[in-house]
Amino acid sequence: MPRFMGFVRMEENIGTPPKSLFEAMDVYIGERAASGVFIDGGGLYGTEDAVNFVVKNGEVTRVDGPYAEGKEVVGGWSLLQYDTLEEAIADTQTFADLHAEHWPEVTVVSTLRQISEGPEEPES
């Protein structure tokens, strides 16, 4: 059964989502957890305590948050499994629709990525 990672990106420091979104998400996640689709997930704290390690030209540099240049940040994640890619895409649309309905004044980007069952062999 294919597994997927879901990511939610949005502007940082835009406030707390409305209570109606929390309630809708509780129902949405509860249904998917009961059916075995939702494996794990959660929200993330802001970038004020984030740490990046950047590898460039063979050197490693540590960059501590917050990041002034960041326009949007990953605010949440999920680990999911569906029978088909089409089901995963349709359900991600439902997730996005909930945000549009309950928090229309913000821009939210919901990303779905299939998890590789690799490792694939490197090409020569």
Rank of each mutant, 00 (worst) to 15 (best):
A68D: 10
K19L: 12
A34G: 02
T16N: 02
K71G: 08
T16G: 03
G15T: 07
V60S: 12
K19C: 03
V63F: 02
L44P: 04
Y28W: 12
Q81N: 06
A90V: 13
P104E: 00
V55H: 13
A96S: 09
G58C: 05
E121G: 07
L112E: 04
S116L: 05
A34Q: 10
D49R: 14
A96I: 08
D83F: 02
K19R: 15
R3S: 15
A90I: 02
E121M: 13
E23F: 04
S35K: 12
A50F: 12
E87K: 14
G70P: 00
P17E: 03
D40P: 01
L21E: 05
G76V: 11
G46E: 04
G43I: 10
D26M: 00
G43N: 05
A33P: 04
V74M: 12
G76E: 10
Y28D: 00
L21C: 10
P119H: 04
V109G: 01
T84Q: 05
A88D: 01
V37H: 11
A33G: 11
M1I: 12
R9F: 15
L80N: 06
Q114L: 07
E105M: 09
V63D: 04
M1P: 10
G65M: 07
A24L: 05
A68V: 01
W77P: 07
E59G: 07
N52L: 15
K71L: 06
L85V: 14
A33F: 08
G6I: 13
S124T: 12
R3Q: 12
T94K: 15
V54A: 04
E105W: 01
I89L: 14
K56I: 03
G41V: 09
F7I: 06
V63N: 10
S78Y: 00
R9D: 05
A96F: 04
I29C: 02
G65R: 07
T84L: 06
Q93G: 09
T61I: 04
T16C: 08
N57D: 14
I39A: 08
P104D: 02
S20G: 03
V37R: 15
V73T: 14
L98F: 05
M10D: 10
L98H: 10
Y45Q: 14
E123R: 14
G75C: 15
A24K: 09
L112K: 09
Q93H: 15
R9V: 03
T16R: 06
L80F: 11
P18M: 00
M10G: 14
M25W: 02
L112R: 06
A50W: 09
V37G: 07
E23S: 12
L98Y: 04
P17K: 04
G118I: 02
T107I: 06
A34M: 08
D97M: 02
G75A: 11
P119L: 06
E120K: 13
G58D: 01
G43V: 08
E120P: 03
V51C: 11
E11K: 10
T107V: 06
E117Y: 01
D83Q: 13
G43K: 05
D40H: 11
I89Y: 12
G6N: 12
V109R: 09
V51Y: 10
T111A: 03
V73N: 03
T92C: 13
